[in-house]
Design a protein around this nucleic acid. Structure first.
Ligand SMILES: [Zn+2]
Length: 276
DNA sequence: CGCCTTTGACCCGCGC
DNA sequence: GCGCGGGTCAAAGGCG
């Protein structure tokens, strides 16, 4: 991934997520996201001497602007998900056809360029008799997230809901490995393993296995929030379920994930099989 | 009460 | 066959 795709938002978040190559000024691509106000990460600094009416006008104006920005971000996220799914299905088709052409009878582990590992079990006979309920193809992605080294917890806020079902101390790493299952959807098969890097305890390494069969909770939440902002009267309890800061945490972690896939793994080249 | 974490027991694959 | 290590289960307890 190239770091040239940076979207400035009023929240001070750099969304390094635009999949389209841009050779022009980023402000031309997202003109509505560029604004001239002094909104630099904090909320609006209201002049306390402003009359009430004017203050309300300012707030309404700000709300409209944030709503627009929110909608654009949501659209971008949806767009990116669509493109990602398209690319992934192409990749799956490629692996499937490749697998049919030369059935080697061995498990192949391939890296795509997005930090994901696609496992393809070529020996369908052996696999089907020993693990009849498992799909032949599982997506494995590894994510490095830098955290405070003094924080010994293995909590990693990525927006999804996880239920911990085990913890193990592994042989070659003094820090324990935690096992989580996605609990956002009851039927979601996704699992993740979280463990600190043996060499650098401030780096959390999360290994995701499988694919979520539901939308990202943040995406769902943003959509719902947008509906509340645009149509505030439609519900008597127009409450956004999560605090803005928790949403920001998730956005920032998503960005960190995207960045870490390219940055940390570039800084410390790690092979997908020889790590931890 | 429901959902979560904790943690010891258990299962299973793999190498010797 | 046996031991080891990674992964999972499930009972118990905590928390909001
Ligand atoms: Zn899920």
């Amino acid at each position: 991934m190239d770091s040239s795709y940076v979207v400035d938002t009023s929240l001070g978040i750099n969304l390094n997520v635009n999949p389209l190559p841009l050779h022009e000024d980023k402000t031309h691509s997202f003109p509505s996201l560029k604004h001239t106000g002094g909104f630099d990460g904090d909320f609006v600094h209201f002049n306390t001497k402003l009359p009430m009416k004017q203050e309300v006008d300012v707030m309404v104006e700000e709300l409209k602007r944030v709503s627009t920005e929110n909608r654009k971000l949501t659209e971008m996220l949806t767009d990116i998900c669509d493109k990602y799914n398209g690319l992934r299905s192409c990749l799956m088709e490629y692996y499937t056809s490749n697998n049919n052409n030369n059935n080697l009878g061995k498990r192949k582990v391939e890296d795509d360029s997005f930090g994901h590992t696609i496992k393809v079990n070529g020996d369908s006979d052996e696999c089907s008799c020993k693990k009849p309920n498992k799909s032949n193809i599982t997506t494995v992605s590894r994510v490095c997230v830098k955290t405070d080294a003094s924080d010994r917890s293995l909590l990693l806020k990525d927006g999804y809901q996880w239920r911990k079902y085990g913890q193990k101390v592994t042989r070659d790493n003094p820090s324990p490995r935690a096992y989580y299952k996605c609990s956002f959807a009851p039927s979601c098969p996704v699992k993740k393993k979280v463990q600190r890097n043996a060499e650098n305890p401030s780096v959390l390494v999360a290994t995701y296995e499988g694919e979520h069969n539901h939308l990202h909770p943040l995406q769902t939440e943003l959509t719902l929030s947008m509906k509340e902002v645009i149509n505030p009267g439609c519900s008597s309890t127009s409450v956004i379920s999560s605090s803005p800061t928790s949403i920001l945490d998730c956005i920032e972690l998503d960005c960190a994930i995207v960045k870490n896939k390219s940055v940390i793994e570039k800084e410390k080249p790690i092979t997908t099989t020889g790590f931890a």
